[in-house]
Design a protein around this nucleic acid. Structure first.
Lengths: 188, 188
DNA sequence: TAACCCATGTAAACGGTTACATGATTTC
DNA sequence: GAAATCATGTAACCGTTTACATGGGTTA
C-alpha cells in the first residue's frame, strides 16, 4: 500500500486528504484505500524517512499536513518499480458464481451476466473517453517514458483491456445461457 | 469463501484435504484458499447446517471426514449464484508499478514487462490446451446448462480472456518502453 | 533415512473495511 | 437549520496468509 502513496507523492506534494480523494478514485484504476488506512500509513512512511510533512495553515479551512517524498522514498520507489513480482491470487466473485451457474435458473443467470456486461461496457466506454481525452490533451507526453502522463496512460490501457475482456466474457456466457440446453437433451 | 467450498461440494462429496487440493489449484482459476482457512470454514458451514460429514476409516492412510452438501446448503448456494454482486476492488501490483514506471530505468522496466508477458502467455497456452481437451472429451456437455462441466468451461473461458488481455497489455507496454523517448525530446 | 504425501487442526500476524470520533466552514 | 466539504485521526472487526503442531505411511 505504501508504494501507492509514494507513487502519488512522486508526482506532487499532497495532504492526507488529497491522497484520500485520489485513492478513492482508484490509483491507476487498480488500487484503492480508505482514509483510515492512509493516515497511519503516512505516519509509518514518515517514520521510515520515506516522506516528510509540513503544516500548511489555512484561514477558511482546517490546517493540513502536506507530505513530500524524500530522496530515500524516491529511491525505494524506483527500486520497487522494476523489482520482480510474485503472481498474486486473483479473486473474482462473479467468476466464482459462474462456477456454480449450472445449479441456477438460467433466466436469472442471464439477467445477472447481462447486467454485469452492461456495467463493464459502461466502464470501458468511460475509460476510452478518458483515453481519447489524454491523447488529445497530452499528445507527445504519452510517448515520453519519464513523464507521469505516460505512466497514467499505461495503467488506463490495462483498464481498457480488462474491461473489454470482461465485457466479452459476460456476453459470451449470457449468450450461451440464452441459447443453451437444459437436461439430458442433445444440442443441435 | 464458504460458497467456493459449497460450489465444490455441490458436484461431489469431498474431504477437507480434497477441498484443499482443489482450492490450491484455484477453483475456476479465480479463487483460492489454504487449508488453515478450509477446516474452520467447514466447521462453520456444518454449524449452519449447510454441510454434514461422516468419518471414513482407511487402513493405509489416516481416517478422513467426508463432507456432503445438505439441501439447505444447496438452496443457499443456488440463491447466491444469481444474487447481484457489488463491484469489488481490483488490486494488481504490476499495474501499480506501471503507475510509477516513468521513474524507472526503461531497460529494467522492459525486462519486467517482457517477463510478465511470457508468464501470462504461458498461462494462456495452458488454459487453451485445457479448453481444447474439454471440447474433445466433454463435447455436448459443454452446452448443457445444468452440467457442472458447462460451468467449469465457462470459468476457464474467463481465464483465457483474462490472460489474453494481460499478455497483450504487457506486450504493448514493453514495446512502448523499447521504442519510446526519454526527456524533453520530440517523438517521430 | 530423508523427503514427501495424507490428514486435520490451532495461533499469530497482517492487511483492509467499517465504524467511531471531532470540529470548523460553506452551501442549499 | 441541515447537509456537504475539508481535515485528521483511532478502534474494532473480518478475511487471508504464514507459522506452529502432530503423526502414520509411502517413495526415493
Amino acid at each position: 500500500m505504501g508504494f501507492a502513496l509514494l507513487g502519488l507523492l512522486a508526482q506532487e506534494p499532497l495532504s492526507g486528504y488529497d491522497l484520500k480523494l485520489r485513492m478513492e478514485r482508484r490509483v491507476g484504476n487498480f488500487w484503492s484505500a480508505g482514509h483510515s488506512q492512509i493516515y497511519p500509513e503516512l505516519a509509518r512512511l514518515e517514520g521510515e524517512g520515506m516522506v516528510e510533512h509540513r503544516v500548511v495553515e489555512q484561514q477558511d479551512r482546517p490546517d493540513k499536513k502536506v507530505y513530500t517524498i524524500t530522496d530515500t522514498g524516491l529511491h525505494e520507489l524506483k527500486e520497487w518499480v522494476t523489482a520482480p513480482v510474485e503472481p498474486g491470487v486473483v479473486r473474482d466473485e462473479l467468476v466464482l458464481k459462474a462456477y456454480s451457474v449450472w445449479l441456477a435458473d438460467p433466466e436469472k443467470a442471464v439477467t445477472l451476466f447481462r447486467d454485469q456486461q452492461r456495467l463493464h461496457k459502461e466502464q470501458l466506454l468511460r475509460y476510452e473517453e478518458i483515453g481519447a481525452w489524454m491523447e488529445e490533451e497530452w499528445g507527445e507526453d504519452l510517448y515520453r517514458l519519464d513523464s507521469p502522463r505516460f505512466a497514467i496512460y499505461a495503467t488506463l490501457q490495462r483498464g481498457i483491456s480488462y474491461e473489454r475482456g470482461y465485457t466479452e466474457w459476460c456476453a459470451w456466457l449470457a449468450y450461451r445461457l440464452e441459447s443453451g440446453v437444459r437436461g439430458g437433451g442433445a444440442r443441435a
